[in-house]
Amino acid sequence: MDNKSVFRMNLVKRRKALGLTQEQLAALLNVSPQAVSKWENTSYPDGELLPQLARELNTSLDFLFGVKITSSERDIEQLVDDEMRATLPENRAEKLLKIMYTALCACNPNNDTVAKLRGSYEHETYAGLKTDRELALARISRDLRYFCFLEIPDNGVNSYFGDTTNMIRLFNTLADDDAISIITYLGASVRNKMFSAAMISEKLNISAEKVQYIIDRLDRFGLVWRVSADIDDKPVILYGYTHQIPLTMILVLAKTITNYIQYMDPNVEEWTQGAFRRGDGEQDEVVPQVPWWGEGEL
């Protein structure tokens, strides 16, 4: 296929992906619809229009002209940047997960084929990566997809914890059914919506004292924020949820932990030690393996 044909094909493909008619694209570029029609059939745009065309189509000139980088010094970050910018916002989650899933699968030394994220899975399915340098877990069933990645420092993840008192306080808080109910109720709110403890108590049928106890704990963790208001000449404290990403991930991963993870696709395990390290720096001895069959051994 010649360069002109590639350009025309990619121009039509990108315009339609954005849901634009020839007339709408022409209006964005301040040209006639006939000009756009010619670009898609018989001619190129003027050179000075090409950068603007790429901007309006939210893509790159490399994509439009079908340029593929084959150098061993490929700029991977730029390739991902171009790909994500060329993807509609509503399709970016799928694209992002495919990129991360492919990268995870590529860490499997026993498979040299390009991984493809399937559209559906019969069972609840995960992908896992466990090495001495990184951990990754992805849930790839379509009803709820996520990807978590952790780079393991040389001295282990436990060195990050330090004082675990607040971790214990958080887990003690989350161990209460009513706390989960309050968090999920607040988490379903729109941005900057404020609630009184009395209203939460009424909505969730939890005693006002219990609601205030839990809200105070969430406040100390920075999971809610507070403002003071005078309502009917009475001072009232209103609370807004901070929509904390880590807390959402903690709850989702807690559900994952409590499910039996049976199906992994793939499960890459190239590790000799875990993500934690001995406090004194002592290294565990490698467990000796049974030697393979000797030549001629029966």
Rank of each mutant, 00 (worst) to 15 (best):
residue 42 T to F: 05
residue 42 T to K: 15
residue 43 S to R: 13
residue 44 Y to G: 04
residue 45 P to F: 06
residue 46 D to Q: 15
residue 46 D to N: 14
residue 47 G to S: 13
residue 47 G to F: 11
residue 49 L to E: 04
residue 50 L to P: 00
residue 50 L to Q: 04
residue 50 L to C: 06
residue 50 L to G: 02
residue 51 P to S: 06
residue 52 Q to F: 02
residue 52 Q to W: 01
residue 52 Q to E: 13
residue 53 L to F: 01
residue 53 L to C: 03
residue 53 L to R: 03
residue 53 L to K: 01
residue 55 R to Y: 13
residue 55 R to H: 13
residue 55 R to M: 06
residue 56 E to C: 11
residue 56 E to G: 02
residue 59 T to W: 05
residue 61 L to H: 03
residue 61 L to N: 04
residue 62 D to C: 01
residue 64 L to Y: 03
residue 64 L to Q: 01
residue 64 L to K: 06
residue 65 F to Y: 12
residue 65 F to R: 00
residue 65 F to M: 12
residue 65 F to K: 03
residue 65 F to G: 05
residue 66 G to H: 06
residue 66 G to S: 07
residue 66 G to M: 07
residue 67 V to F: 06
residue 68 K to E: 12
residue 69 I to Y: 05
residue 70 T to K: 08
residue 71 S to W: 00
residue 72 S to F: 08
residue 73 E to A: 11
residue 74 R to N: 04
residue 74 R to Q: 12
residue 75 D to K: 10
residue 76 I to F: 11
residue 76 I to S: 03
residue 76 I to Q: 04
residue 77 E to F: 09
residue 78 Q to W: 07
residue 78 Q to L: 14
residue 79 L to R: 05
residue 81 D to M: 09
residue 81 D to N: 14
residue 82 D to A: 12
residue 82 D to W: 09
residue 82 D to Y: 07
residue 84 M to E: 08
residue 86 A to L: 10
residue 86 A to I: 07
residue 86 A to M: 10
residue 86 A to G: 15
residue 87 T to R: 04
residue 87 T to V: 14
residue 88 L to A: 14
residue 88 L to R: 14
residue 88 L to K: 14
residue 88 L to F: 02
residue 89 P to F: 09
residue 89 P to D: 08
residue 89 P to W: 07
residue 90 E to T: 00
residue 90 E to P: 00
residue 90 E to W: 05
residue 91 N to H: 15
residue 91 N to A: 15
residue 92 R to S: 12
residue 92 R to D: 14
residue 92 R to H: 10
residue 93 A to T: 10
residue 94 E to C: 05
residue 95 K to N: 11
residue 95 K to W: 10
residue 96 L to W: 06
residue 96 L to M: 14
residue 96 L to E: 15
residue 96 L to A: 15
residue 96 L to Q: 13
residue 96 L to N: 08
